[in-house]
Design a binder for these strands. Structure first.
Lengths: 412, 412
DNA sequence: CTTATATGTTCGGCAATGCAACAAATTGCC
DNA sequence: GGCAATTTGTTGCATTGCCGAACATATAAG
């Protein structure tokens, strides 16, 4: 059988777009990354397993593991694995404290911070609710710093902080973490990456990305999806956010606007959207239309979506109908995405994660309009990591730098 | 400045999905591919230019060029380049006969064959019209073989046939050229790659892909778009086909259905589509709705779209209005694609290429509903290579194997 | 206790790139 | 015409990194 093997990425100085050759050191970087990524995604493995998985020679793998050990990223342990005849192979395990990242999430109605070690170990995590509305960016930065401080203080002795990642509800230029627009926070043209770096006073790179894109990344890398390489993550907050992983790679478009599915057309006869156009998906399937369809919600004292959830749990018929109607529109929009991206999995996050049980059937109905073949390949799933998908994704984003080039990053 | 450098792909035996390490030979493959691809896309370059472009050492580049020369793929020439002080650097040029491919296109109302050398040199090309309708696959295969024979015979002495590529109006599994479905040709579940290989009796690999995907590839690689890495190609034939290049890579989805934009929803109040759903994009913006909107067309003796074109050229008001209405719907669909993919360029091919001048304004109007920012980055263009985009793309698909691994392929 | 088996370890070989020194070919200046 | 400055090709050696073979080690099975 023949499979395609894809080498990783290097950073090198040079002008953008130029075709670059590579030297021998690049081989090493790639092979270190291959081993480390396997451990990160699949957990511990014996040396002999790593040998067969990478296809490299025993002696090469031994050398690679030696280097990762020197970098403080892995350790070895005798006798962990089930063994047959022959000399037992030691189990190689990750040391989470060898590479820790700070993950940050700036969502519509909460901010969250977590410390995460390589392998996905979450040391600590805090999320605090915030009322919706526009926040002064500087206040938000200092709020985050205040949440982060105790978490960083609680990390084990001798840990190695390797980076920070942040998810934000807005359009982000990933190269430098510049936020073009975050309507739900009232932010425009903000050098968020730099601001976070300044405020956190950490001497590590800070990466920023869109929350739905990171939700997709989180689900892709840590959602227990096995070999899935094509997935869509749909997050309902105020609007509808959408992150796409195509063939194992996040889709951004030229400036990070890719996946703005909330403002695609599904109903020309629909209402006017806040974007100025008519009939956008999120005006039919977002939070606002859901609440509009539940008459009882305003009379309750609860936060709106909580009230809907509670009514649904009580089996309130009008509420269930409202959810179903919303779900049908959700499914209609998903059918478009299925036709366009032919994914293996569509993960529902945010609002849809909470209401999944009540939505599922109606979503399936709405999806009926998509082409039968791609629909049959696409599985609709509730988010496995729930509300934390963007936060986990932010950690993955920060860890990716290290995993791509362990020697360069861990050496700092 | 720091740029990302992406290494290419290798073929290696092993189980799919396994993380593979790479050895030294892989470096060479990658560097050969880098040099060859640069020449293929940008034409001749001096050795010193190649040195600075690749970032490799002078002596390494000399060695690489030596190997490509031995493979018969390039030659060197003194004095071609403008020179300043210092020893002049010889110009490295491609020898198109060093790697020739056969390109095939099976479209709705024509079939075409071309012989193309590396660097994009088209030796010969034939296209014959066919009435629409369902064709026996075997007849089509022998028709293609008959067209191909004289073209292959006319190739220069000592040429090296390196592969064949085929574009087909249907859903294709690219790994083995298996056609799931080609509704406009009446084909289902057809091992087209194998059939073509058998019929053509060429001892080279045959690659098959969807025509819109290859239209996108053709425009991307040979459409004179410079550094554009995000583009969408929209081909109007009977339906609407759509090929996407995202960050320089074709988007296929898990089984090749990605880009089936023709059956995305734009108008719930619209007509029933042949796919069974209502309000699909192609029922508003495809060829059929266009013809439906031109009352005069049936009374003319011409082939339908030719008649429309002729009426438009004559300035017939009802026809221009019909085209504009179609164009507006086309633009509405494009606005969805712009929100979802954030491309730099949207190339209009097929039907829309022919009617571009009459469509352009209305398309712009339809696009107004997309988000302002991604819209402002997306340029709508008429196809630069016109009706041949899928055919050129088929050649590029076949040449890609060689470019990715010059030593392995050219050695045969 | 022996044998078969699988894996770690060591060391020499090989492939590919980089580097430095030198040679060659051009421009420009006198 | 000659010479310096500049750029690039060429050559030989150093370095990096992977592979393979031989050997050592640790287990299971009989």
């Amino acid at each position: 059988m023949v499979v395609e093997v894809e080498l990783g990425r290097v950073k090198r100085s040079g002008r953008p777009g130029a075709a670059r050759g590579v030297a021998a050191e690049e081989l090493r970087r790639h092979n270190l990354a291959t081993v480390l990524e396997h451990l990160h995604l699949n957990g511990s493995a014996t040396r002999s397993q790593l040998t067969s998985i990478t296809g490299l020679n025993r002696s090469t793998v031994a050398d690679l593991i030696g280097q990762l050990t020197d970098l403080g990223l892995v350790g070895e342990e005798q006798g962990g694995a089930i063994s047959g005849p022959g000399r037992p192979s030691p189990v190689v395990y990750l040391k989470p404290e060898g590479a820790v990242v700070l993950a940050v999430e700036m969502s519509v109605d909460s901010i969250a911070v977590a410390t995460v070690g390589i392998g996905g170990h979450v040391y600590n995590q805090i999320r605090i609710a915030r009322p919706r509305g526009h926040f002064d960016p500087d206040t938000t930065m200092s709020d985050i710093a205040e949440l982060a401080r105790p978490l960083l203080g609680a990390l084990p002795q001798g840990h190695n902080l390797a980076g920070a990642g942040a998810a934000v509800v807005g359009i982000v230029r990933q190269s430098d973490g510049f936020v073009h627009l975050a309507p739900n926070l009232g932010w425009r043209e903000l050098p968020l990456g730099q601001m976070l770096a300044d405020e956190l006073e950490l001497d590590v790179p800070v990466r920023v990305a869109n929350d739905a894109d990171l939700g997709a990344l989180g689900e892709y890398r840590r959602g227990g999806l096995g070999g899935v390489r094509h997935l869509i993550y749909i997050s309902g907050e105020v609007g509808i956010g959408c992150g796409v992983i195509a063939n194992g790679r996040p889709l951004h478009g030229v400036a990070g606007y890719a996946g703005e599915a909330g403002h695609t057309l599904v109903n020309p006869d629909g209402l006017m959207c806040r974007c100025g156009a008519t009939g956008c998906w999120e005006t039919e399937a977002g939070e606002k239309p859901l609440l509009r369809r539940v008459p009882a919600v305003e009379s309750s004292g609860l936060e709106a979506v909580d009230a809907v959830t509670q009514l649904a749990e009580l089996g309130d018929k009008p509420t269930l109908r409202a959810i179903a109607e919303t779900g049908t529109w959700l499914g209609i929009g998903i059918s478009n995405l299925i036709n366009l991206f032919n994914p293996e999995v569509v993960v529902l996050g945010g609002l849809y994660h909470r209401l999944f049980d009540y939505l599922e059937e109606a979503v399936g109905k709405g999806m009926e309009r998509s082409l039968a073949a791609p629909r049959s390949m696409a599985q609709i799933r509730r988010s496995a990591i729930g509300a934390n998908a963007p936060l986990i994704g932010a950690a993955e984003l920060a860890l990716a730098d290290l995993i791509d080039n362990p020697a360069a990053v861990a050496a700092r």
